[in-house]
Amino acid sequence: MAKEMTQGIILSLGSVNADFQVRVDQKIGETTTVLARDFRRLSGGKAANVAYLASKLGAPASIIARVGDDDLSLQALGALKEMAIDLRHVEKVQGATTGFSMIMVPADGKKNIMLSTNANDAWEESDHQKVRVAIAEAPEGSVLVVDYEIPAFIVEVAIKAAHEKGFSIVLDPSPPVRVNKALFFMVDYIVPDASEAEGLTGSRATSAEEGKKAALKLLQDGVRHAIIKLEDGGCVIANAEIILHVPPVEVEVVDTTGAGDAFAGALAVAILEKRTLKDMACFAVAASHAAVTAYGSQPAYPARERLEELFDQISAKVKKLHAK
């Protein structure tokens, strides 16, 4: 059952894409031409996926983003409109192409993505005020989820504006090369995967111990809660008081596309629901687990009943870790 939420909403700022997805039976790079099947055209992008999952779990969501003035924007926004997500702050950029990704999913489900950011990077310096207004209009108790698949200066504006309003801030540091660590003191939750953690801290999260090492480094850099998504599907979450390891449970991996975005979206919902730190982490891991069990990102996102089933299994396995 959904827990009682605050009056806040989830503000999702970042990429919105048209996804073109196929399954492949050969390893990418083995031959010049790779035969594919199961072609799908979907809505995607980090901001879109976060808002979609949040809305599916019953949380009000609003997207702040840019798309092109082309036919791809209809694909990118179609599923979001069907979910009645607030798109007032999604602007069509004249003459720009909507961001798109080409996703190849091999037999093991571990996707390969080629991303063309296009309109996602078509922000101007004059857009500062539009971002501030979108955040200022949001009700108290809202949560900002932001990624770096948009220009870094827009991320900075959003983080500062949300911090001034007292909103919780969830940062998806992808790609890590764009991340400004000077903003970390304003970040409540950072959610890097193993490779992003390595880019930010030098420690790749190949194990709970390595995840702990990366999390502690991010705490030293200023974030309040560091959540490292481990390669096995679990996570390590740390703050100044406690370090927890959330191990994975066994699920059939069909397609990992969008699993990290499901993690961020579920985390944001758990923050709105004022769950405990342990429950936040388990809720997010449950969402990413469910997301990998079906093909596609948004079409694979779970209903709350399925998520809560996995949550119960996962929460029973949580362990405390020692700082040293």
Score class of each variant (00 low, 15 high):
Lys181Ser: 11
Ala162Ile: 08
Asp127Trp: 04
Ala119Trp: 08
Ser195Ala: 15
Lys181Ile: 10
Thr98Asn: 11
Val170Ala: 01
Phe184Ile: 06
Thr201Glu: 07
Leu171Ser: 01
Asp147Ser: 12
Val143Phe: 04
Leu115Ser: 06
Glu140Leu: 13
Val131Gly: 04
Ala96Leu: 01
Glu140Met: 12
Tyr189Asp: 06
Thr98Gln: 07
Asn120Ser: 09
Phe167Ala: 03
Asp121Lys: 09
Ala161Lys: 11
Asn118Gln: 14
Ala136Met: 12
Ala161Glu: 12
Ala96Phe: 07
Val187Phe: 10
Asp193Glu: 11
Gly95Trp: 13
Gln94Ser: 15
Pro192Arg: 01
Val133Asn: 12
Pro173Ser: 10
Ile103Cys: 04
Ala119Glu: 09
Pro139Val: 01
Ser174Pro: 00
Ile150Val: 04
Val131Met: 05
Ala158Pro: 02
Leu200Glu: 08
Glu140Ile: 04
Asn180Gly: 11
Gly95Thr: 11
Ala194Arg: 00
Leu200Asp: 07
Lys110Arg: 15
Pro173Thr: 07
Ala162Phe: 05
Asp108Met: 00
Tyr189Ile: 07
Ser142Asp: 08
Thr117Glu: 14
Ala122Glu: 03
Glu125Met: 12
Pro151Tyr: 05
Pro176Cys: 02
Ala136Pro: 07
Ser142Lys: 08
Ala96Trp: 06
Asn120Ile: 09
Val177Gly: 11
Glu124Leu: 14
Phe153Asp: 12
Thr117Val: 14
Ser101Gly: 15
Val191Asp: 04
Ser101Phe: 03
Pro139Asp: 06
Glu140Phe: 09
Val146Gln: 00
Asp147Arg: 04
Asp188Val: 06
Glu156Val: 08
Ile150Glu: 05
Met104Ala: 15
His163Glu: 02
Lys181Ala: 10
Ser126Glu: 14
Val131Glu: 02
Ser168Leu: 10
Tyr189His: 00
Glu137Ala: 14
Ile169Cys: 07
Asp108Ala: 07
Pro176Val: 01
Pro176His: 02
Asp108Trp: 04
Ser142Gly: 05
Glu125Pro: 01
Asp127Ser: 01
Asn112Lys: 13
Gly166Trp: 11
Arg132Asn: 02
Pro192Val: 01
Thr97Cys: 11
Leu171Thr: 10
Ala158Met: 06
Arg178Ile: 00
Leu183Ile: 08
Pro175Phe: 10
Ser116Arg: 12
Ala134Pro: 09
Asp193Lys: 10
Gly166Met: 06
Gly202Ala: 05
Ala197His: 03
Trp123Asn: 10
Ser195Leu: 14
Ile135Ala: 11
Phe100Tyr: 15
Gly99Val: 03
Phe153Cys: 02
Gln129Glu: 14
Ala122Cys: 05
Pro106Ser: 03
Phe184Gly: 01
Glu198Trp: 12
Asp188Pro: 01
Glu124Val: 02
Ile103Gly: 05
Pro175Met: 07
Ile113Asp: 02
Glu125Ile: 11
Phe167Cys: 03
Thr98Asp: 09
Ser116Val: 15
Glu196Met: 13
Ala134His: 03
Ala119Ile: 07
Gly141Ala: 06
Val179Met: 05
Ile135Asn: 00
Ser168Trp: 04
Ser195Phe: 13
Asp188Glu: 00
Ser142Val: 08
Met104Arg: 12
Ile190Phe: 04
Val191Thr: 13
Val143Leu: 05
Leu144Val: 02
Glu156Ile: 01
Val143Ala: 08
Lys110Thr: 09
Gln94Pro: 00
Asn118Trp: 03
Ala182Pro: 07
Asp188Trp: 00
Ile150Ser: 02
Thr201Asn: 10
Thr201Phe: 09
Ala107Thr: 14
Pro106Thr: 06
Thr97Gly: 00
Ser168Asp: 12
Val146Gly: 00
